[in-house]
Design a protein around this nucleic acid. Sequence first.
RNA 1: GCCGGGAUGGUGGAGUUGGUAUACACGGGAGACUUAAGAUCUUCUUCCCGAAAGGGAUCGUGGGUUCGAGUCCCACUCCCGGCACCA
Length: 801
Amino acid sequence: MSYDHKAIDAKWQKRWEDAGLFNAKDDDAREKFYLLVEFPYPSGAGLHVGHPRSYTALDTIARKKRMEGKNVLFPMGWDAFGLPAENYAIKTGNHPATFTQTNIDTFRRQLKSMGFSFDWSREFSTTDPAYYKWTQWMFLQFFKAGLAYKAEVAINWCPKDKCGLANEEVIGGACERCGTPVEKRLKSQWMIAITKYADRLIDDLATVDYLPKIKKQQEDWIGRSEGAEIDFALCHPSSHIVISSAARDLIDGVPPIVGMTEKITVFTTRPDTIFGVTYVVLAPEHPLVASLTTDEQRESVDAYVAASTKKTDIERGDDTKEKTGVFTGSFVTNPANGEKVPVWVADYVLGHYGTGAVMAVPQHDERDCAFAEKFGLPIVDAPLLSFDEAVTKTGGKKTVQYKLRDWVFSRQRYWGEPIPLVDCGACGWVAVSDADLPVELPNVEKYEPTDDGESPLATIDSFVNTKCPQCGGDAKRETDTMPNWAGSSWYFLRYIDPKNDTAFASKELLKQWMPVDLYNGGMEHTTLHLLYSRFWNKFLFDQGLVPTSEPYARRHSHGLIMSDDGTKMSKSKGNVVNPDDIVGEHGADTFRVYILFMGPFEEPVPWSSNGVIGVRRFLDRVMRMEELVKSEKRPEGVPSEVEGAQVKSPEVIRALHKMIAKVTKDIDGFSFNTAVAAMMIFVNEVYVAGSIDKNSLATFVKVFAPFAPHVANELWEKLCMDGFAEAQPWPVADASLAADDELNIAVQVNGKLRGTVTVPADIDEATLIATAKESPTVAKYLVSEPTRTIVVKGRMVNFVL
RNA sequence: GCCGGGAUGGUGGAGUUGGUAUACACGGGAGACUUAAGAUCUUCUUCCCGAAAGGGAUCGUGGGUUCGAGUCCCACUCCCGGCACCA
């Protein structure tokens, strides 16, 4: 017999919704628990089986937490700005909002069909003007605090998407979305000074409970290294050294040089190797390159710099290729020993890191060594100083450098939040006043970026031309939009107070609900969304707008669901599993339990259609347990007046309490696969016993409810119990009822298993040893008296001869 | 190259602070029920030898520590992820 999943799924989903069972309560004496899953981008393809892995796991936790008496906030919404909707709009001419709305409706229907206990009353989309009003408002707080600034920078440019990319969106030198190699392009962009928070973003990791690999990845991405800046004076400062301000601005991260420069400042983490310096290298972008180049060398240096700037990051980053470079003709003095060393230009030195100049120590650095060998530069074996000695001797200063760069916040696209700033000839960049927020996206005829790489908003005169909020004069709006990471950087705050139109959320409610107690998401967001949102929250905290410095108390992460052949599911390969098919054919609970059972939550696991069928069989078995209540045979000696259904089997009771203990522990430890196995073992025990009393079955149903809520409630109702299964308190295991009265003890001779003995659980050691010795399979190996006997309580006896 | 994480039956995976390796499930075999199929139930299923009793081997490879190692240590091979000329 197979249960009717379609009827049962629909019946309980409707009842939950009608009862508002999963809505979080704002004024509630119970302890709060805020669970968060990454809200999806509602793509046209619909929900992928990968999405629900995270949702199912946290839904199970949410349901258990409610049963444990917590006031649970478990919301869902839509991260809906982004390129796919825009590309669709470009192709079809339809507004991306229409497409997005259709997709949201599909996603919502799919999520509801799985019975997730989201609080749908708090749903919103980042594309709602009532939401992005506050995204814009927050951007203005960055702007007013001086953390948002416009800069002419060499940005990562994707020629296919015609769009600038943040450092974090470039994977191996290629566009994260389309894989096109990114180019460098000089562009005026809005930046946010995330680097100002670099130290806190690292140091505060000590205050949160993240998986170690997540912490590590964030630390490495921020890439703090401690070293020193050391000046190398020019040997022949000449009057032709003039630094144009334009040249200085070319370099991101290099502070403007004041006055005449007669030195090169390098950054090194190894000042102790200063005596081994045999040359100094400037990045091709370094502002001193032009002025340091002598007339004899000018032609070759100019050609080299021109060639380097044309290279993509992939070409330049290829460290397997031979090093290239060229001599400038100038020399500097080693401040430690007065030695004269040549200055070279080479693109293995990066313009954006440190000072864009390095002291080369071929003896201690592989790259310097390769370069020195290629160009015949000396390699000297010199004595080492201590770090501090070296800094003092060279007159250098200790500094810290980061790999993290400021966040490029401008996108030249349509489907994003407009940056709410206007450019006034008289006042410069001015914030749109709060009363005029949101700056809504205007309708455009063409959604494509312009050929010179401007946002399509630039073509809408009625949008662009405006008045300055400060002086009232003619001004022009910024036409760039925000990256799609903007809306997701603070969405966890909006769930707390989603309808508020006077603030992004009320302070009282923020204080009540923050921080997020448990946040689960993909590892791929560790250096993007997770870092951005931590930074964003820290900034709001500094502004006194949110109550906690860290947004997420705990961060966990799930593995990918792979195709059954172990490769990634992809549309092009046609091996994508549609959750609708599984839910339609086997029901929501089969889908949920399979997702949890298929493998360890943190690991990637292949999808198996057979595994799904196995889970469905299990659910059918669970549903049929009800028959075992009615058909129980009364054991010998039990008086007839005891109601048959209430006769308790000690084996079942013991199995029940073992199962409760195991499942409780496993949910808390994210071991959902073994929790499911524990419930299967219990059900198997019940079938072996051939009967179960009603109370025990009801207890099982409560434990089962967070995993398979539809089947659990149906069974709950069949047992004539009142209310919802998930409205019951979470069962507590009784250790005394779970304890075995007899134990199987392994008996070893010289560490080799030679037999087992079954003994009473409370046996004393001497009796146990005696029993073990007499065991027939063991006795024959005991050719002499043991020199040593090792007893592990409740487990084994080992005789050492 | 550097930094993480892995490697357990035909398959996905369990394996406590070092203490009966292979739980649970899939797949497969045999049987019951059925006109039959499916479903369900019973049962076997790490490998090798053996009719069985039993014995031997086994957690990527090779060493080590220990009464005892999947688990700890050393070296190596392969796989997955992250970073990648960051001085």
